[in-house]
Design a protein around this nucleic acid. Structure first.
Length: 722
RNA sequence: GGGCGGUUAGCUCAGCUGGUAGAGCGUCUCAUUUACACUGAGAAGGCCACAGGUUCGAGUCCUGUACCGCCCACCA
């Protein structure tokens, strides 16, 4: 046959991908031998509907595809389930931003109309990112593609909610939560991004009730919250304040009498050692308040303005304005002792970067004590392993100190909480998955459903089993493919997502969701900067595919995989991948030329070596198969592809091919000639199998044209060499 | 404040249980148009962040320091 002297990825990739799809090789029903070795399952971490492809995705799916293709060729019944996440807050924000351009807010539209807009957006953009994944060549079973808000998935979410609710693990409570004033919703602590901010530490004198000339000086970064102070706390061991404990203070401006309490949580060394306690607006103060039965006075509302519990002059002021006014007023009263410059971390919304406020609010929570214990045990016992192992530290440290999970969000896009409130007795409520015909409390009123939706991670926590058919216990996929085998993801969502999948599965199915968690490195720029669109430092993998081909892109990424936390992306590796694809192409072209017309060679039979060089290459290849299997089993993808590269380029091309030329053209020995051809074909074709998992397109294309005896229809379903 | 990564050739990175440093890319020299110039052969290039310690011997183990990065945290 006539192959051009250069491999052309563009022509090949589309054609080959369609060929695989058409033949259903990505489906487990069609890709396994009759006697399969069992199932091997992976679920794709579902990208957001707001997302566009970045190099992190490309790296992530390259790993998963290598594993899936390896297992598939080994004779496992492989399933890789793709899908998309509805990404509640993130998606809602994007649509809101678009509306804003037209000068419309979501409140102008109303809930139903707004949701229609989000659905429109989802229909339009939801599949784009998955189409991009296809260009990388990943072998997901697209017929099983799922969305976290499709009908069956909603059922899984409702079932999980009902389960927790009926077991008493979900409760409603007025708690101090992280509140994003921009998104107008509560956030979990994992959805915060702390940012350093230069501010001041104000030292404020609080006069004693019994003698107004005596003061206790408190140090605070948030003077405006003093309007909600209900105590001053000091450390019980603090000699400076010992005799003041139990005495009263008159809160300046407000005039309220508040106690001085002793709490071991107070650090004597910080500030003045005396702390104002605002149980409504500070997470620490909540604890202190609880221990000392302090009143909670909310002074900031959800629009971060001072509310009706503050003096008239403050009501309606924004927090920042109130701060200035308070400091001014205190200065006038001579109550500011000093102002220190102070740099500290302030919480911001990880979605919109707005300053997050702590305020009391009615929310729904999942009790975490039992769940976290289960999740901890599963990893401690080794049933679930992280790779690299050190990431287990991060997992444990979160779970061991975890707070109850706030699962309600005050947004519209998401799974609405299936709780209905009685209108006669508005404090009472009941669970109902379907709209109830009548109120189960008073039997008379038309109950109203909770306005809240669930945290997006509540639904993605169910991902590995929900996509396989849970809660339908008879679901065939669930039986065949669950628990899944490996999960590949980034370290940024170990607790947001991985931990929650683990305890959800343990609680709801009494099974682990996967055995191995592969944490891939964060892809950074060559200078070690974060890749981001807004900074202009992002690199679009599609551009790499356009320039060098999908195989080259995968090669370049896989080449750089190590156990490091970050990886500095170097385009040179992708260029090397392109060269390598071409090298493979030409090696195959050369081998074809050596073969007489119409001769097909059986590659299943290992040829016998006749020369030292023959012996060496066959032994090296055998060793390569063995070590590649070991490396893949240990998830050492970078080393695996580097070894394959080295073998193919140097051992096979530089040495064996050159020797083979002599053994064929310079020798008169017909048997030697024929045997050399066999070895050429044997090593070449079997190398293509090994390389296929990283570079699927070029290897498949060549497999299709090589003269192989008893050839299968495709390399993707060929058997892995032994 | 705590924890976790990292610091090895110009660049991106390997170096497992300790024995005088490796790969890819880049650079230089030569070869060749005979599978591939997206080629072949070869070469140069590193007091392995720093300071101590253990050892016959340390990039590799221990202690500490510095710098870079990430994460967690109730110093208000």
């Amino acid at each position: 046959m006539d192959l051009p002297s250069q491999y052309n990825p563009k022509d090949t990739e589309k054609k080959i991908y369609q060929f695989w799809m058409k033949n259903g090789y990505f489906k487990p029903e069609k890709n396994a031998p009759k006697k399969s070795k069992g199932a091997y399952t992976v679920v794709l971490p579902p990208p957001n509907i707001t997302g566009s492809l970045h190099l992190g995705h490309a790296l992530n799916v390259t790993i998963q595809d290598a594993l899936i293709r390896w297992k598939r060729m080994q004779g496992y019944k492989t399933l890789w389930v793709p899908g998309i996440d509805h990404a509640a807050i993130a998606a809602q924000n994007v649509v809101e931003k678009n509306l804003k351009k037209e000068g419309i807010s979501r409140f102008d539209l109303g809930r139903e109309k707004f949701l229609e807009k989000v659905w429109e957006w989802k229909e339009k953009y939801g599949d784009i990112i998955l189409d991009q994944f296809k260009q990388i060549g990943i072998s997901c079973d697209w017929s099983r593609c799922r969305f976290t808000m499709d009908k069956e998935y909603v059922k899984a979410v409702e079932t999980a909610f009902q389960y927790y609710y009926e077991k008493g693990m979900i409760y409603r409570g007025k708690r101090v939560v992280n509140w994003c004033p921009r998104c107008q919703t509560s956030l979990s602590e994992l959805e915060l991004a702390h940012q350093e901010e230069k501010s001041n530490l104000w030292h404020i004198k609080y006069p004693l009730a019994e003698n107004k000339d005596q003061y206790v000086t408190v140090a605070t970064t948030r003077p405006e919250t003093m309007l909600g102070d209900t105590a001053v706390a000091v450390n019980p061991k603090d000699e400076r304040y010992k005799n003041l404990i139990g005495k009263k203070i008159i809160l300046p401006i407000v005039g309220r009498e508040i106690p001085i309490v002793a709490d071991p949580m107070i650090d004597q060394a910080f500030g003045t050692g005396a702390v104002k306690v605002t149980p409504a607006h500070d997470m620490t103060d909540v604890e202190i308040g609880r221990r000392h039965n302090l009143e909670t006075i909310q002074v900031i509302n959800e629009y971060v303005k001072m509310n009706e519990n503050t003096p008239a002059a403050y009501q309606g002021l924004k927090v920042a304005e109130a701060r200035l006014k308070i400091v001014e007023e205190l200065t006038g009263l001579g109550l500011i002792e000093k102002i220190e410059e102070y740099t500290h971390q302030v919480p911001r919304c990880s979605r919109c970067n707005a300053l997050v406020e702590n305020l009391p609010s009615w929310q729904w929570f999942v009790k975490m004590d039992e769940l976290s214990q289960k999740a901890i045990k599963a990893v401690e016992s080794g049933k679930i392993k992280f790779h690299p192992k050190h990431w287990e530290n991060l997992y444990f440290s979160w779970l061991k100190n975890v707070r109850d999970w706030c699962i309600s969000r005050q947004i519209w896009w998401g799974h609405r909480i299936p709780i209905w409130f009685c209108q006669t007795e508005p404090e009472k409520y009941f669970l109902s998955i379907k709209p109830p015909k009548k109120c189960l409390i008073c039997k008379k009123c038309q109950p109203k459903q909770s306005e809240d939706v669930l945290d997006t991670w509540f639904s993605s926590a169910l991902w590995p089993f929900a996509v396989l058919g849970w809660p339908n216990k008879k679901a065939k996929d669930l039986k065949t493919f669950y628990p899944t085998d490996s999960l590949t993801t980034g370290h940024d969502i170990i607790n947001l997502w991985v931990a929650r999948m683990i305890f959800s599965s343990l609680e709801l199915l009494n099974k682990i969701p996967f055995k191995d968690v592969i944490i891939n490195a964060m892809v950074k720029t060559k200078d070690g900067k974060r890749m981001s669109k807004s900074l202009g430092t992002g690199i679009d993998p599609l551009l790499m595919i356009e320039k060098y081909g999908a195989d080259a892109t995968r090669f370049g990424l896989a080449w750089q995989i190590t156990e490091l936390q970050d990886m500095r992306f170097d385009e040179a590796n992708i260029m090397a991948g392109k060269k390598f694809a071409n090298k493979i192409w030409n090696a195959a072209r050369f081998v074809c030329w050596q073969l007489p017309d119409k001769e097909k060679i059986d590659i299943k039979i290992t040829p016998r070596p006749k020369t030292e060089t023959d012996k060496k290459i066959l032994a090296d290849f055998k060793e390569l198969v063995k070590s590649t299997d070991k490396l893949l089993a240990d998830f050492e993808f970078g080393k695996a592809i580097q070894d394959l590269y080295h073998f193919f380029w140097h051992n096979f091309c530089d040495i064996y091919l050159e020797t083979a030329k002599k053994q064929i053209s310079e020798s008169q020995d017909k048997k030697l000639q024929a045997n050399t051809r066999k070895i050429l074909m044997y090593v070449l074709t079997n190398s293509l199998k090994l390389l296929h998992i990283f570079m699927p397109f070029v290897t498949e294309e060549l497999y299709q044209v090589l003269p192989i005896k008893n050839k299968k229809k495709a390399l993707i379903i060929e058997s892995w060499p032994k």
